[in-house]
Write a protein that binds this DNA or RNA. Structure first.
Lengths: 203, 203, 203, 203
DNA sequence: AATGAATGAGGCTTCATTCAT
DNA sequence: TATGAATGAAGCCTCATTCAT
């Protein structure tokens, strides 16, 4: 489990979980506003509702907070999509439904997505690898559905690339909102992107 | 002109240009490695080949360096694509040529693209707007070509969205290289993405 | 209260008072020696008996230290005179006693007085106004006594000017010591100035 | 001569005088505004009408500028009073005339006087002694006149102290203007102070 | 477990002075 | 003589982390 990767002085595992959740919530709201580097540990402690001393009872370094935060965001995304996958009975309909749901999810988590794009680089190699694996897992899931439910049989490679495209097209709704959200509503955006996608996989 | 937005103590404009170019070169190589926040002004001065005092003769604050750097990257991209546009005689062939050239360019500028994704947020509103306008201009150019040379007439909105998709598909070659470059060579990636694109614009 | 005008990170108000008092003591001894501008914050921290980090837990900027210091000096002066005023029963005797005590006080606080003359200008408008008001209050007190106990009735304006003269004649014992203390002992100086003063207020 | 105490690279003595006069004029206006320490050598060069390089052709260190400036102010004061002394035929009338003229002079030179009070301390011992001697000389002159023209014979010591009082009462019109100039016009101030002075020396 | 005062390395920036032209 | 670009020591301040209570 993710949180086990971070050492805490406190023994009570439930408490650790609770405090870290407070911490993540505080950190996300601060990182949205000013980014990881411009946010101080004191600010995080305050936003989490406890003292700087307490903060350090539950983590070792500031980077630990970034890791917990980034990981939590990936979990939010995963939790937000997984329920929509019908892995037993894949179908184009289900695929489209998954994609649309994913785009709605990204719209909800815009700022969180931005944090990923800006701060993952600041993680050290090992933890970065760990969180990127989560992304890989999700892409792989989507790839499988694409592969199995297209009307026409796609190559694995095409499916893999299309899965990546979909993922990034979701993200770009967040990180290019300064241009996209001026021109499209979310629904328009979804319709168009799904439309393009269908042209590719059909026929 | 961009550099006029940053105040320098030095009067000789040629020298200012020269020193700032040294600076940008040094900064890019450092930002690639460790990002803006973890790079110190002293390191930038050293990498630029002059003293910290000299550095501050040519800028006012560290953020000025980020602005100059980000702006220079956008210029590199612009200079790298513009020559390929044949605006007098738009054609599908030219469009495909532009797109392929752009993907090759992105491959060359991978690290620079990453800097954009990670650090533009650290610019203050005004300068951020300024550089984003450059991106908008490029997208608009591509949009026009897409609009005029499709075999089938596209709507302006479709063209706009497709232009954005192309741009981001370029970038993602850089920012998702941990996943894409494991599965595809650059040429394969280009072939596939262009193939998808053609499916969309050709009926 | 004065110290409330300066923000501290530390919550314990007693501790804030204690640390700031250490700070003021250290700062005064340094400012006496080399003035505000030539004294570094590190020197002040060291002279105060704590680290630079701790120093900044109790103030926001170097100028805050100057304000605290200047204000403390004004307080020293006020505390040094006020007890001598017999406001219920004003009399020439009491007036003379006050003046003499004040001159002795100035002799004790020579260096501190010099700090006022040299550094108050470096305070920003608002805080400068604040400390000058303390001086005004003291002058006004003296003015009242002069007005009420002269053998001959003085005009308010004469009393006001005489109060200022007395105050400055005290200060000048400090800031012109290079000339006055070569020619007079403190007692001689007091006798003469008081003598002159009496000539003015008596007929 | 004063300026000989400061070394210059330039040989032409007339030029040295000219450039230094420009420099003093620039420096005074800057010191009035922001004080010696907050004024940079670059600003002084600019206000003087030449480059930082040229500035350093005429002085050795920033402190040299302070010395030249302070000395020039003392000279202004001296030149402003001396003509009024009638040393051959001392008289009370002449004395009063001198004092009044001096008070008017101080009114003209208020800001310059403030510079003296705030910055003389920043001179190194030797140069400080040098300029203070100029003040001593002026006081001594006044002392002699007081001694010789009183209706009643004063002691040398009384005369010396009165001379100092007059001098400082002039200065205080400048350095306590925040309180005095709210209550008195210059003429009222002069009348009152001269009135007090006459009460002391007559009778 | 929780607190928050203390620490000091290190970052950004300024500016007096020099020196090649 | 005049210029102004270059220098780097040094100043102010921040902030991640520790530790005694």
């Amino acid at each position: 489990m993710t949180q086990d990767k971070i050492v805490s002085n406190v023994k009570d595992q439930e408490l650790v979980k609770k405090r870290r959740d407070q911490m993540i919530k505080g950190a996300i709201s601060l990182f949205k506003e000013k980014g990881f580097h411009k946010t101080t540990t004191r600010e995080i402690a305050k936003a989490s509702g406890f003292s700087i001393g307490t903060l350090y009872e539950y983590i070792r370094t500031k980077e630990d907070i970034l890791f917990l935060t980034v990981d939590a965001i990936y979990e939010k995304v995963r939790e937000g999509i997984e329920p929509f996958f019908n892995l037993e009975h894949p179908s184009e309909d289900n695929l489209i439904h998954v994609i649309k749901s994913y785009f709605h999810l990204v719209d909800d988590l815009q700022e969180e997505i931005l944090i990923l794009y800006q701060e993952v680089k600041s993680l050290k190699k090992e933890t970065r690898e760990y969180v990127l694996q989560k992304e890989r897992d999700m892409v792989y899931l989507l790839e499988k559905v694409i592969l199995n439910c297209g009307p026409k049989q796609l190559s694995e490679e095409d499916a893999a690339l299309l899965a990546n495209n979909i993922f990034v097209q979701g993200h770009m709704w967040a990180f290019r909102r300064w241009i996209l959200q001026k021109q499209f509503t979310l629904e328009e955006y979804i319709e168009k992107q799904v439309g393009f996608f269908l042209k590719i996989i059909r026929d």
